[in-house]
Design a protein around this nucleic acid. Structure first.
Length: 338
DNA sequence: AAAACATGGCTAC
DNA sequence: TAGCCCTGTTTTG
């Protein structure tokens, strides 16, 4: 899945492509027929992300709340307006379409996760891009649809929810949660979540995090995955943040020095921003040249410890350890993290 | 072809 | 803690 960075990117996609445009909502698969009927014909008014939850507001105090879980994903098709900061991070800038708006080239990458046209669980991107004049030539790129691709795109597989404007299509599949709620219900969900570095007041967020951790006699490796302590961190960021902090995952929250926790929070803030910009969980930042290129290209060159069990630590050479913590695989370096 | 696995999280026991 | 959900990719036989 999608850890926090993907969800923020998805919210940005909705802000750009759906907010202010009336949508048709349907549930091709049928399992969200009632919810889709409630949303059908309405106009999204704002999109927001908190941790791993995405909220899309519609006229009339109706909110769509989506949690992708482990397998969920959104596929975007049609005209996809890309946030310039995202586009530049990927080295492709926009062009002007017939409507006079900036239409960036759809960004495609075979890693799937960092594709703007399929955001969520890792998978081969199925891009159903309706090519316009300006994007001609892109159809030769891997995975891009032919210029005369059908519109709206044919439904492929199990689509829980399809949101369609006259220009853009978003298909949701495999979510853990997909529900329509009132503003009040949405607020209740948000209230139960720990701080997200990209939401609310930075200083207050840091305090909340530090307090929540120091209150608990629970391993920091567990606390980082607890969405009530801090939201948006998943299994990859957990392992990487702990390595970067030189912290043994088993250390109880209450014995960790406050300064260490502040550093941990600020590191999460930094990594999350990098993730939102690049679309990848790049946890070895500061790389240059070939190393950076490799890291961007391959998941295996992107992390310090995640998915590296049995391999020598990149820093001290100790074998990276693997254990189960809370039924999730935890990777760490016994040499560097103590 | 079948089984295992995955960036989550809920519920029942 | 185990089971379960949801979908797709990778690994195994």
């Amino acid at each position: 899945m999608p850890e926090g960075h993907s969800v923020h990117r998805i919210a940005r996609q909705f802000s750009r492509n759906f907010v202010g445009r009336r949508v048709r909502a349907s549930s091709p698969q049928g399992r969200f027929a009632e919810g889709a009927a409630l949303l059908d014909g309405r106009e999204p008014t704002r999109a927001r992300a908190v941790g791993k939850q995405m909220f899309l507001a519609f006229e009339g105090d109706l909110w769509l709340r989506v949690h992708l879980g482990l397998y969920g994903a959104w596929d975007f098709a049609g005209e996809i307006l890309v946030d310039p900061t995202i586009a530049s991070a990927n080295g492709r800038m926009g062009q002007t379409n017939q409507r006079g708006t900036v239409l960036d080239e759809p960004i495609y990458d075979d890693a799937g996760e960092n594709s703007l046209t399929s955001i969520g669980a890792p998978r081969k991107t199925r891009v159903h891009v309706r090519m316009s004049e300006q994007t001609k030539g892109l159809d030769e790129a891997d995975g891009l649809a032919a210029p005369d691709a059908e519109w709206p795109p044919p439904v492929v597989g199990q689509v829980r929810l399809r949101l369609l404007t006259d220009a853009t299509c978003a298909d949701l599949r495999g979510p853990t949660a997909c529900v329509v709620e009132t503003g009040e219900q949405v607020q209740a969900v948000i209230d139960r979540l720990g701080p997200d570095p990209l939401v609310g007041d930075p200083a207050e967020n840091e305090e909340r995090f530090v307090r929540a951790v120091r209150r608990r006699n629970v391993a920091i490796g567990q606390l980082l995955m607890d969405q009530a302590v801090v939201s948006g961190i998943g299994n990859v960021y957990r392992a990487e943040l702990l390595f970067r902090a030189g912290l043994d995952p088993h250390t109880p929250g209450k014995v960790i020095p406050e300064e260490t926790l502040r550093g941990l929070w600020r590191d999460w803030d930094a990594l999350l921003r990098i993730g939102v910009e690049t679309g990848q969980m790049m946890t070895m930042d500061g790389l240059e040249g070939e190393a950076w290129r490799r890291a961007m290209a391959s998941r295996d060159d992107r992390h310090w410890v995640y998915h590296r069990a049995g391999l020598p630590c990149r820093v001290c050479g100790t074998e990276i350890a693997l254990e189960e913590m809370q039924a999730r695989k935890l990777y760490w370096c016994p040499g560097c993290q103590r």
